[in-house]
Computed example of a mutant assay.
Amino acid sequence: MFYWLSISLTAVDLISKLFVRYHMDVGDTKVFREGLLHFTYYQNSGAAGSSFQGYGRLFGVIAVLFIAFVVIYRKRRSDESGLRLQDAGFAFLVAGAAGNGIERLLQGKVTDFLQFSPDGGILNIADLFINVGVVILIGQLLYESIRARVRST
């Protein structure tokens, strides 16, 4: 499930970025739902919040290292309950890293286009996948913690 989900989600991210690059010019904004969602095409050569501009390829290398770490970790971990949820969380994280990493390595920048408020930051689907992955992994840790406490009482 991990590999299938990672590859599928990465494809969704990359296709969405291709669509934006094909249909919009950098700086264009299209209002999808006023006050809720704008599509604003921005190219980010740095990290989150446009920090560290110009280091896009370095962040691409970091993404590759992160993906390698996750794959190695998954192969070395012991079989225990909750791994499906953990695999799903890791798949979202890897897909986000891969989607942004591929663009950073090839172009030195990522395509950002999702803006949830007119004054808010601009991100992409890979960024959303990273957030979902973190939430899933935190949820899995909380579940395991509660389950362990229930067992011990």
Rank of each mutant, 00 (worst) to 15 (best):
G99P: 01
R147A: 09
A91E: 10
L58R: 02
I130E: 05
I122Q: 07
F69C: 12
L142G: 13
V71S: 04
R84F: 12
A148C: 00
S145W: 13
L58H: 07
E144P: 00
A98R: 01
F90S: 06
G82H: 08
F32Q: 04
R77A: 13
R149L: 15
G120N: 09
G121I: 01
F52H: 14
S152M: 09
S117F: 14
E103L: 08
G120W: 12
R149V: 11
R104H: 01
A68L: 15
T111F: 03
R77I: 14
V134F: 04
L105W: 00
Q43S: 12
R104F: 01
I138D: 10
G101F: 09
D87R: 13
F59N: 03
S78A: 15
L137D: 09
A95E: 13
G121P: 02
I102T: 09
A95V: 13
V134D: 03
A148I: 08
R84S: 11
G35K: 11
I67P: 05
R147T: 12
V94H: 04
V61A: 15
P118T: 11
G82P: 09
Y143Q: 05
R104V: 03
I72D: 10
I146G: 01
L65W: 00
G120R: 08
N131M: 10
K75H: 10
G54M: 10
L142Q: 05
L93Q: 10
L123G: 13
Q140H: 08
N100Q: 06
G49T: 04
I125G: 07
K109R: 15
R104G: 03
L123N: 10
N44K: 08
V61W: 00
Q86R: 13
G120M: 07
Q86K: 13
T40D: 07
F39S: 02
G120I: 00
L142R: 03
D127E: 11
R84G: 14
S45H: 05
D112F: 02
V132S: 02
G133Q: 11
L114D: 06
G60Y: 01
D79P: 15
E80I: 04
L114R: 01
R76T: 12
G54F: 05
F52D: 06
I146P: 01
R76Q: 14
G96Y: 09
F52A: 15
